[in-house]
């Protein structure tokens, strides 16, 4: 093995350790940390790591966080349907709450006042639960607070969620309203 290849191998290992091991509240690593540990050629190293991860069904994603690039490893494609969403990663009501918040923001051009989002979630969750869900989504980076105090789509949502697919799934899986099911029936 040539010296360059050995060096790249070593850097790929270091990059995978940085990206896999979570040391902060949120997953991923900032550009500055990769530059410091890997060096200025970190993008070539990430590309090599991405090629290795491909066979495992994983991929390296880049997303903008606070105006700077951030890198994290995500599942490539969708998680297997056989996996129960409530086990381990997120509870069912957290997933539903996030789906609601993201759908509401999507329907309002990407931003909305916190009170309106909270009130929307309260249609399906108790007030305290709605508030705690939104606080959690903010802390996890799924939502962000804009300059004017509005809720906006967060950096982690941009990295993990396909919003167009989410909107399509919600519209297609929603039960039809009673009036459309029974047009002849009087309300």
């Amino acid at each position: 093995m040539s010296e360059d290849k050995a060096k790249l191998e070593e850097k790929v290992k270091r990059a995978s350790q940085l990206l896999f091991l979570r040391r902060h509240r949120n997953p991923g690593v900032g550009e500055w940390e990769l530059k410091r540990v890997i060096g200025s050629d970190y993008r070539a190293v990430l590309k090599a790591l991405d090629e290795r991860l491909d066979s495992l069904g994983l991929t390296v994603r880049e997303v903008e966080h606070e105006g700077k690039p951030r890198f994290l490893i995500t599942i490539k494609g969708r998680p297997p349907l056989e996996l129960e969403p409530g086990l381990g990663w997120m509870r069912i009501d957290s997933l539903a709450g996030l789906a609601m918040a993201l759908a509401f923001l999507t329907a309002h051009g990407g931003r909305a006042p916190p009170a309106e989002v909270e009130s929307f979630l309260e249609s399906k969750f108790p007030k305290r639960r709605a508030r705690s869900l939104l606080t959690g989504f903010l802390e996890e980076g799924y939502l962000e607070l804009g300059k004017g105090g509005a809720y906006e789509i967060g950096w982690r949502t941009k990295a993990e969620v396909d919003l167009a697919e989410l909107a399509r799934r919600i519209i297609s899986s929603a039960p039809r309203s009673a009036s459309s099911e029974n047009p002849s029936q009087t309300p």
Partner: peptide
């Protein structure tokens, strides 16, 4: 709603 999100997300690992 949970299932719709589950089918639209590529969770970080």
């Amino acid at each position: 709603l949970a299932r719709a999100l589950w089918q639209s997300i590529s969770p970080s690992v």
